[in-house]
C-alpha cells in the first residue's frame, strides 16, 4: 500500500521536473497544437494542454487554488476573459513588447488579445444590390424594411451576447432594448444552427441577410467543408457594417497568466511567442481569424472578403464582459430564443 501511495504521488508530480508550461484553453483548433510544438522546438519548453468549456475550466482553476498546476488560460471571447479576471484568476502581465504590439482596446492589465474575429453581415447579391445596403450599420438592422429577412444564431451564443453588449456600450440600454424588439421581428426564421448555417440560409435563398463571424465563411470557401459548400459560399457576399462610424464589431481570443502558475518565467515567453509574426501567420492561415499585430496580413481567403475595412478600435473589448449578462436578459426579453 505505501508503495502505491508513493507511486500515485510520484505520478501526480512528475510534471514538475521538466521544463514546461500547462495551458487551459477553450480554443479547439488542431493548428494551435502544431503551433505549440513549434514553440517547444524553439525554446525547449513543452506545452501541456487541456481544452474544454470556459466555466468548468474556470471552476476547476478556482477550486484547485494553489495546487493548480495550470500556467495560462486561453479563452475565445472577451467577455469570458473579463469573467476570469473578475474572479481573480490572473496576475498582471507586465511586458513592454506585448504592450507595444497589442492595441490598448484589445487588452487589459490581466490579459492580452492574441487574435481578432469580426462579426459581419452576409447578403445574396442576386437579391440585394450593394447600393441598397452600402453603409449599413448594426443599428440599421432594426429597420422595418428588413422584416423577415435576417438569419442569426441563438441568444445563448456568446458572440451574439458580445455583439449586443457592444451595442449597449455604444448606444445605452434603452436604445438597445428598443432596437432588439424591432430586430427580433426581422428574423427570417427561428434561430437555429451555428454561424455557417446562417450563411447557408442566405445562399439557399431562405434569408436575405445573415450575421456570422468571418472565419465560418472562410471555412466554407476553403473547401474544407466539401465542394458544394464552397460553391454555396460564392453565392453570398460579405458586408462590413458601421464603416461610417465606429467600425465593425471585433471580438478576440485572449490569454492570461494564472495566479498560482508554477512556471511563471516561461509564461511570458509563450505569450510573446504567440505575438511573433511567425506565430500570428500560422494562426491566421489555419483558423482564418484576424492577426493581432499589424505587420501580419490575414489569410488570402479573408483578404478576399475585404481588405482595409474599418475595425471598431474605439470600443474596449473588456466592456463586452461588463454588459454580457444585461445583453442576454434583454435578448431573451425581446423574444430572441
Amino acid at each position: 500500500m505505501p508503495q502505491l501511495v508513493f507511486l500515485i504521488i510520484l505520478l501526480s508530480f512528475q510534471n514538475i521536473f521538466t521544463k514546461e508550461i500547462n495551458l487551459f484553453t477553450t480554443r479547439h483548433y488542431d493548428s494551435d497544437l502544431q503551433l505549440y510544438e513549434d514553440f517547444t522546438k524553439e525554446t525547449g519548453i513543452k506545452v501541456n494542454v487541456i481544452s474544454g468549456k470556459s466555466k468548468p475550466l474556470e471552476k476547476r482553476i478556482i477550486e484547485e487554488g494553489k495546487s493548480c498546476i495550470g500556467d495560462l488560460f486561453f479563452l475565445a471571447d472577451a467577455g469570458r476573459l473579463v469573467s476570469a479576471e473578475k474572479k481573480g484568476l490572473f496576475i498582471k502581465i507586465k511586458s513592454q513588447s506585448i504592450e507595444q504590439k497589442v492595441p490598448e482596446n484589445f487588452r487589459s492589465p490581466y490579459w492580452v488579445g492574441i487574435t481578432k474575429r469580426a462579426r459581419i453581415i452576409y447578403y445574396n447579391p442576386k437579391e440585394t444590390k450593394l447600393d441598397e445596403i452600402k453603409n449599413l450599420s448594426y443599428e440599421d438592422l432594426s429597420s422595418i424594411k428588413f422584416k423577415n429577412s435576417i438569419a442569426i444564431r441563438q441568444s445563448n451564443n456568446v458572440y451574439n451576447q458580445s455583439l449586443v453588449a457592444s451595442l449597449i456600450e455604444n448606444n445605452g440600454i434603452d436604445f438597445t432594448k428598443q432596437w432588439l424588439k424591432k430586430f427580433v421581428k426581422n428574423f427570417s426564421r427561428n434561430p437555429t444552427g451555428n454561424d455557417r448555417a446562417q450563411i447557408l440560409s442566405v445562399a439557399a435563398g431562405e434569408s436575405k441577410f445573415a450575421i456570422a463571424n468571418t472565419y465560418y465563411y472562410a471555412l466554407m470557401a476553403s473547401g474544407k467543408k466539401g465542394e458544394d459548400q464552397k460553391k454555396a459560399s460564392k453565392k453570398v457576399k460579405p458586408l462590413f457594417p458601421n464603416q461610417l462610424d465606429r467600425g465593425t464589431h471585433m471580438n478576440i481570443s485572449g490569454i492570461g497568466i494564472l495566479k498560482h502558475s508554477p512556471n511563471k518565467a516561461n509564461t511570458k515567453k509563450f505569450i510573446e511567442f504567440l505575438l511573433t509574426p511567425k506565430a500570428q501567420k500560422h494562426i491566421v492561415n489555419n483558423t482564418y481569424e484576424y492577426p493581432m499585430i499589424e505587420t501580419v496580413t490575414p489569410s488570402k481567403l479573408i483578404q478576399k472578403m475585404g481588405n482595409n475595412f474599418k475595425q471598431d478600435n474605439s470600443s474596449k473589448v473588456s466592456t463586452y464582459g461588463k454588459w454580457q449578462k444585461e445583453a442576454f436578459k434583454l435578448m431573451r426579453k425581446a423574444g430572441w430564443n
Partner: peptide, 12 residues
Amino acid sequence: VNLKSIFIGTFY
C-alpha cells in the same frame, strides 16, 4: 492534505 493534485485533473 493536498488531495487536489491527486484527484483533480488526473486519471484517478
